[in-house]
Design a protein around this nucleic acid. Structure first.
Lengths: 306, 306
DNA sequence: GAAAAATAGTTGCTTTTGTCAACTAAATTG
DNA sequence: CAATTTAGTTGACAAAAGCAACTATTTTTC
């Protein structure tokens, strides 16, 4: 029995008590938790059958049937015989049902407000983030693509975080020393010193306001451009984020009418390499170097655009 | 209704379903969740009365009385009339009761194991830490001091993260533009270029492996030293972290026999200023400047050490 | 394409779970 | 020491949930 498990058990006990779901007359209403969950399910999926509800909430169909009967009598729901299946009904909330649920939601929210009122905004943020992390780790399904957002305006903190990601990821994956991070810091400093807001751009992929991937285009002499800082948090690979970032970057190059895009990388980064090749980049230079505590080949890839 | 509240509500719904406690015959045993909770409470506190159990679990005393009667019949518990109060009983588990609870615990733990088996060790750690944070924020309403750790060896990713904190915090609190972050990047680059592992040091305060505060000492000519990058995440202020970082830094200066420590700050940072003064620093210079999108006074503080 | 099997939902009956109030006996209060 | 409170028990009952038999469809099978 690991400590992890017992700690989770302890948290489960705590949260069971915290949720306060074991007392009937949930939220001091005339409805039980089960009834409210049923109403909530009906409101969530606009068209739903009793069968579906029993599956989702794991209820006995006889039990549910009686609850729905009461809801019907109280004008909380309407039942419309399904067109495809005359045995089944499509259940919908009436305005009264919607109103009731709204009242209950408000009560529930007030209760939560009461519990977090002493927290300052940043503590609330930490709370929500932690809950999100818990949920993510406990659900099998990977990260939802829809939760990834993209942007390219630099806000305070972004560059530092991107530097951090470079240091942390390359440190973990390739055992690069802190000297690598120092090198990245230098590249960013040089960039910030002389970048052009029109001809240069950094794209960031975020998951719940945390940067998880990036790519940048920096203009160079002779209508060339350099692709830099292409990086993806390992936990977020395989979701198409890298492809999207590269596509955005290359599209930008085309817009800007750059004739050639190049990038410098190392022979170690096999995953990124694959993406570069898929985007059309071709190896144009390779040279062995010793740096950041490792020996590898420094390589240049080029993509002709005209 | 804030987004925070609705996010918490969403988590609550998720966790209610996750806990899977709404079906009776909990863990496929012959006991209900309530009965198991009662057994658990008895096992936790070696001496407990029925009254206490009704308080803890919020149960009706009549209901509990009947359940305990059954437990007694099944030899799960023993009741001993209390010496101090002849109305009350001290309840204890029998060996059979202990055994039953052990079996149930194992079942529960196996269930949890099944849900986290796909997580790697570091993910498990993140999960437990996040649960811990959720619990802390919902109960104590504050971060536990014991969860803050301190270190001063730089690992890959640290510097980037510290830069990020500077950009993000000063951006949020004082509306400094990204130029400030660029300036911080330069100071770190210069530091990394020519720092001395013996005479310079960076302290970091971490909460669950995430840096939340820092301070550094950098040696200067003439047996002087500079205090730099003193910063604390607003969510972690008031916990004595800043004081600890400053104390560590000044102690280090004494060890290194620096004769004077100075720092450069701005008139805007009132919270840090307070700490500097409490540590003995005195204002030695003040000059109005316009930078990073703001007008303020640049100030120098000094602390004589010999 | 008709008989057999499966499915959506209802209803009767039962058990389990939980509530309320009246009661006993001991303890506390003023 | 009388009045009140408290710990626990018991009876009566209500609410929550489960099980199985039933109807009316739909799907499957041969």
């Amino acid at each position: 029995m690991t400590t992890t498990t017992s700690k989770i058990r302890s948290f489960n006990r705590f949260y069971t008590a915290h949720l306060d779901i074991l007392s009937q007359h949930y939220l001091d209403s005339d409805y039980s938790l089960t009834e409210i969950r049923i109403l909530y399910e009906i409101s969530e999926s606009k068209i739903i059958t009793a069968q579906k509800i029993t599956e989702i909430l794991n209820l006995d169909k006889g039990y549910l049937s009686r609850i729905l009967k009461r809801f019907l009598k109280e004008n909380l729901i309407v039942k419309v015989t399904s067109a495809e299946d005359k045995r089944a009904f499509n259940i919908k909330l009436t305005d009264i049902g919607i109103e009731l649920l709204a009242v209950l939601n408000t009560k529930s929210e007030n209760k939560i407000e009461g519990k977090i009122e002493k927290l300052n905004p940043s503590e609330k943020e930490i709370l929500v983030n932690s809950m999100h992390t818990v949920r993510n780790l406990l659900t099998e399904n990977k990260i939802a693509k829809e939760d990834i957002t993209y942007r390219h305006e630099i806000t305070p903190g972004d560059i530092g975080y991107i530097i951090h990601l470079h240091g942390a990821i390359y440190g973990k994956e390739y055992h690069f020393s802190s000297d690598f991070e120092k090198y990245v810091i230098k590249t960013f400093y040089d960039f910030l010193e002389k970048h052009s807001p029109e001809k240069d751009r950094i794209w960031m992929a975020e998951y719940h306001n945390k940067i998880v991937g990036c790519a940048a285009i920096i203009h160079q002499p002779n209508e060339e451009a350099q692709l830099r800082w292409f990086l993806l948090d390992p936990a977020f690979r395989g979701l198409g984020i890298g492809k999207r970032l590269l596509t955005d970057a290359i599209d930008f190059c085309k817009e800007q009418k750059f004739k050639n895009v190049f990038l410098l990388t190392t022979s170690l980064q096999d995953k990124a390499l694959q993406m570069y090749k898929m985007a059309g980049f071709e190896l144009t230079m390779s040279e062995e170097v010793q740096e950041w505590g490792k020996t590898f080949n420094e390589e240049r890839y080029d993509l002709k655009l005209s």
